[in-house]
Simulated assay, not measured.
Amino acid sequence: MTPAPVDETAARLAALDDYAGFSVRPGAGWVSLAAADGFLDRWLALLIAEHGGRNVAGSTLGSALAAAVIGPTVGSMLLDRRCPDPAPANLTALPSGTGEFDARGVRTGRIAVLAVDPAAAHPDSVVLPDEKALDEWWAVGVAATLTPLFEAVRTRAPFGLRNLWGLAADDVTATSLWLAELAGRDQQAAWTRAQRLLDALARHAPIRFLRSRPFPVGERLHQVRGTCCLYYRSTCEPGPPAENRCDTCPLRDDDSRRERLLAYP
């Protein structure tokens, strides 16, 4: 029997890297994003205990929720020009016990494909005429899913909505660059593709968000994130803040950023 298109794409992503993949129709222990609001207080409390503050905890929770949406959808679009349904009832995540997620998944086989895709005839496929329509389908669904989730996080933690949406935008470009490197594809083309996705998302997000900027180092293309995640303030990272800032943090100076990125294997 021919595999369902969502299973095919999930398997191809997982073949590149376990975390790039996503589970399809997972079982017990997973939480649908449609039901996530009922777990946010518990997850936030775990993150506050872990990181020592509500602000960084709110950022971390927002990042985890964004990744559960962005990872499976953007990964599929970059690799196969397909997009699993980004509706909250379809997206699901496996809580880690720390307030974050161990894995992401989808609950059904529903997936958008282009008319030229061999999977267009599959009953699970939503057939779209071109890449522009695919981007729009993705953006409408992502905005509808993340808007109530981010608003719920914001009512519980001081990390602002503009910053939460900025983290999601940064995840789009980070996912695109990472997958291009894993798949041996052109990173500049992946960056350009990510910008088209963000153009579509900006039309539907309820707030204007910042974007990352490209940062080439040697033969690799990295990014400087548009939004700081505040992880350098976490009690998990003792030491001077200047040393704790991520290599892609907008608060880090470019000279030290370049030096650290050059040391990547």
Rank of each mutant, 00 (worst) to 15 (best):
M1P: 07
P3V: 09
A4L: 09
V6I: 12
V6W: 00
E8D: 13
R12C: 02
A14H: 05
A15D: 04
L16T: 09
L16E: 07
D17T: 05
D18Q: 12
A20Q: 02
G21S: 03
G21D: 01
R25M: 10
G27M: 08
W30M: 14
L33E: 02
A34Y: 05
D37N: 15
G38L: 10
F39T: 15
R42I: 10
W43L: 12
W43D: 12
L44D: 02
A45M: 08
A49P: 01
A49Q: 15
A49G: 14
E50L: 13
H51N: 14
H51K: 12
G52V: 08
N55T: 15
N55I: 09
G58W: 00
S59V: 00
S59D: 08
A64K: 01
A66M: 03
A68P: 00
V69R: 00
V69A: 04
P72C: 06
L78E: 09
D80K: 00
R81M: 03
P84S: 08
A87H: 11
T92F: 02
L94F: 10
S96A: 15
S96P: 05
E100L: 11
D102M: 14
D102E: 11
A103P: 04
R104K: 09
G105C: 07
G105H: 00
G109E: 07
I111M: 13
L114W: 04
D117M: 10
D117L: 09
D117F: 11
P118V: 09
A120C: 07
S125V: 06
V126K: 04
V127R: 01
L128G: 02
P129K: 13
K132L: 12
E136D: 15
W138C: 01
W138V: 01
W138A: 00
A139H: 01
V142Q: 05
V142T: 01
L146Q: 01
P148Y: 12
R154M: 08
R154P: 04
P158A: 11
P158D: 12
G160Q: 04
L161N: 08
L161W: 11
R162D: 11
R162L: 06
L164A: 07
L167D: 01
A168D: 02
A168G: 07
D170P: 06
D171F: 10
V172R: 01
V172Q: 00
S176G: 10
L177H: 03
W178G: 05
A180V: 04
E181W: 13
Q187I: 10
Q188R: 15
A190F: 06
T192K: 14
T192I: 15
R193E: 11
Q195I: 11
R196F: 11
R196C: 08
D199H: 03
A202L: 03
R208S: 13
F209E: 04
R211F: 04
R211P: 00
R211G: 02
P214S: 11
V217P: 03
G218I: 04
G218A: 10
E219R: 15
R220H: 10
R220I: 05
V224T: 14
R225C: 03
L230K: 07
C236G: 14
P241W: 08
A242Y: 11
A242L: 06
E243S: 14
N244S: 13
R245C: 08
D247R: 12
P250G: 12
L251Q: 13
D255G: 11
R258L: 13
E259S: 15
Y264P: 03
